Amino acid sequence: MTLLITLDALQTLDAIERRQSFAAAAEELHRVPSAVSYTINKLEEDLGVELFDRSRRKAELTAIGRLVLEQGRQILTAAQELTALARQAADGWEVKLRICIESVLSCDAIYDLIEQFQRIQPKTEIRLSEEVLSGSWDALIDGRCDLVIGAEGMPPAPGYATHPLGQVLFEFAVAADHPLTHLPTPLATSAIQDHPTVIVADSSQRLPTRSAGLLDGRSRIYVPTIEHKIAAQCKGLGVGYLPHHRITQQLAQGQLVVLPLDAARPPVDISVAWQRSNNGKGLKWFVERLQRMQFDPEQGQLVEKNLEPF
C-alpha cells in the first residue's frame, strides 16, 4: 500500500508552521524554498485537499491542514521514539524489563533500585508484577518476566541462574480477640482444627500449584495476596502463618498476636532468579546490584551486605 503522507512531508509541514514561513522552513530543513513548496503541493495533490489558505498575503493552515499537522506531529513523535528504541535495543538495553516480585515480599524493597536505574537508563520501561509460590517460577519459565526477586526453592527446570538473598521468617498469627489466644502455648496442631486457615492461592498457570505452611484447619479461605491474607486474619476470619516483616505494624498496634506452635514453620530461603541466556544490559545491571544485597528479615528490606539499609 502506497502511503500518501510521508514523514518527510509531515516534517516539512511542521517546520513551516513553527517557523511561520516557507522560506524559514527551507532554511531549517537545509533545502531551497522551491523544494519545500513542491513537497507541500505534492501532499495537497495526493490528498486532494488544501492544507494552506493562499488567498491571504501570508499562507495560513486551513482547518484540514491544522488537523493533518496535529495528528502528524504525533506520528513524528512516535517515529522519533521508535528510532531511539531501535538504537537502544541495538546497544543491548531492553525496551522493556519485566520484574516479578514474590508475594511474600513487597515492591517497596526494590523501589530504590528502580530509581537508580532510571537515572542511567530512563528509556527502558519497567513492569512490575506479583506472583505467589510456584507462580514466580512459572512466570519466568513462561516468559512473562525477565527477573524474579524472592523466588522460593530451586529452579524447576535447567537454564536458570539464581543468587541467594536470605531467609524470610514466618509467624503463626491470629487476631487479638481470637479464641486461640485463650489456650496455653505452644499450641498443638490439633488445637486449630476448628478454625479456618487463610491461604494465599498459588498463582502458577502451568507449573503444579502448591501451598506453603498449610495447616489442618476444618476449612480454608483462599485469598490472592499476602496483603489480603493479613487483612483477613486481622478480622479474625481465619488463622495462618504470615511473614514476620509484613506484620510488625499489626503486632505493634495489637491487631495480631503471635502464638507459638508445637511444630514451628522453618524460615524460607529466597533468591533472585533469571534466565542464563538473557544478555540484556538492564537485567545484568539489576542482577549485579542484587548480588551485593541481602534480605533483612526484620525490616523486610534489601540491604547492602554488611552495610546500612539503602
Results as ranks from 00 to 15, higher is better:
A157C: 06
V272T: 03
V148I: 11
S204F: 07
E50F: 15
L207I: 07
E227R: 10
A59F: 00
A201K: 10
D46C: 01
E28A: 06
L261P: 05
L140M: 00
A161H: 10
E304M: 08
I101A: 01
Q291F: 00
A86Y: 09
L10Q: 14
T83A: 09
G217I: 01
V32C: 07
M1T: 07
R276F: 01
V32Q: 15
Y111E: 06
R246W: 13
V200R: 10
R19I: 00
D53R: 02
I230Q: 15
A63Q: 14
Q71W: 06
T6D: 04
A84I: 10
Q291E: 14
I270M: 03
Q11G: 12
Y111C: 01
H178C: 02
L307A: 13
H178K: 03
F295A: 04
G254L: 02
Q250T: 06
L128Y: 05
D194R: 02
L47C: 05
S190I: 12
G217H: 02
E115R: 05
F286E: 00
Q294C: 08
D91V: 01
R144G: 00
R210Q: 12
T83G: 10
A15V: 03
Q71A: 10
P260M: 02
W93H: 12
H228S: 14
A151E: 00
G240Y: 06
K42W: 11
Q118M: 15
S203R: 10
A176C: 09
R119D: 02
Q118W: 13
Q80M: 07
S55H: 14
I226T: 15
R119E: 13
T77G: 00
R98A: 00
M154V: 05
A25F: 02
Q20I: 10
G143V: 02
L7P: 00
A191K: 08
A176H: 12
H30K: 15
R218M: 08
L76A: 13
A175Y: 07
S211N: 07
G92F: 03
K96W: 01
E81K: 15
L128I: 06
R127K: 09
H245W: 08
L183F: 12
L113F: 09
R210N: 06
A35F: 13
R87I: 05
E304S: 07
R66C: 02
R56V: 03
K305M: 05
Q116K: 11
G153R: 02
A23N: 13
V148N: 10
R292N: 12
L113T: 10
Y38F: 15
L4K: 14
L67D: 06
L7H: 04
K281Y: 13
G65W: 11
R127V: 07
I247D: 11
C234F: 05
S37H: 13
W274G: 01
G254P: 05
K229T: 07
Q249N: 11
D177L: 00
V32A: 08
Q80G: 13
R66Q: 12
D177I: 00
I40Y: 09
Y222A: 09
I101F: 10
P243E: 13
Q88W: 13
